[in-house]
């Protein structure tokens, strides 16, 4: 459970997040909203890249904002990025191992098993020893997911993981995302503009618009909420 209280972020004269208070339950959660709603800013606050002007974030009774940025990953806050940020010069195995050896405990053999296990889980065993720069964008997307879920994450932040993926790969990704909480015990927060992916993966969803919380609750209900339709679906319809 992730408890966010009165969270505000200011960039110059712009309030990217405005007194946001919400609680993400355990399991798979969606976070949606139009462009500029503050979704990635919220991820950046959770990751430690952005310092809020006010507010608290509590996970498992720990105030996350008191923790240094790189320590948050070690503690269990993992993420992917809108623009894929895999390490191009390393192999797929080394990419995932790099996260595990810095953010998770384990002996050498346990580390190798954990990395191989997660590569098999996301379907990258075949390209385990390939250098990432030689791989497709699709593979890079799945490498990022593998990096985010390897070891024992507490929170997995997925920032538009399906961007650029064809439909059949999105279905494969949805299967992976759905099984992450059961596999790792982590709470997953999924940001994506693909509503069918959010519906397929998330039982619970929050909606932001102009940095404010518009709605939060069971996904099916939220997606039919009038305020959400006005803020998000309405915009798409227009």
């Amino acid at each position: 459970m992730i408890e966010i209280t009165d969270l505000s972020v200011q960039f110059g004269g712009v309030r990217s997040l405005d007194e946001v208070t919400l609680t993400f339950p355990d399991g798979n959660c969606g976070l949606i909203g139009p462009n500029g709603a503050g979704k990635t800013t919220l991820f950046n606050v959770l990751s430690g890249f952005v310092t809020p002007v006010t507010g608290r974030v509590v996970i498992d009774d720990v105030d996350l904002l008191d923790m240094a940025d790189y320590r948050r990953a070690r503690w269990g806050v993992r993420r992917t990025f809108q623009t894929v940020q895999t390490i191009e010069s390393l192999t797929v195995y080394e990419n995932v191992r790099t996260v595990h050896e810095h953010a998770a405990e384990g002996s050498r053999s346990e580390r190798q098993d954990a990395v191989d296990d997660v590569l098999a889980f996301v379907g990258l065993s075949d390209v385990r020893d390939s250098v990432v720069r030689a791989l497709s964008q699709r593979d890079r997307r799945f490498i990022e997911v593998a990096r985010a879920i390897v070891g024992a994450p507490r929170v997995v932040l997925l920032d538009e993981p399906a961007a650029g993926l064809p439909e059949e790969e999105t279905d494969h990704l949805a299967q992976i995302i759905r099984s992450v909480p059961e596999r790792t015990g982590a709470t997953v927060i999924l940001v994506d503009h693909d509503m069918s992916l959010v519906q397929a993966c998330c039982d619970w969803t929050a909606v932001l618009d102009f940095g404010r919380l518009v709605a939060a609750g069971p996904t099916a209900e939220v997606l039919h909420d009038e305020r959400v339709l006005a803020a998000y679906v309405g915009e798409e319809g227009a």
Partner: peptide, 11 residues
């Protein structure tokens, strides 16, 4: 490659 990504890896 990317300092934000490195931080997100616990580095």
């Amino acid at each position: 490659q990317s300092e934000p990504s490195a931080l997100a890896s616990g580095i």
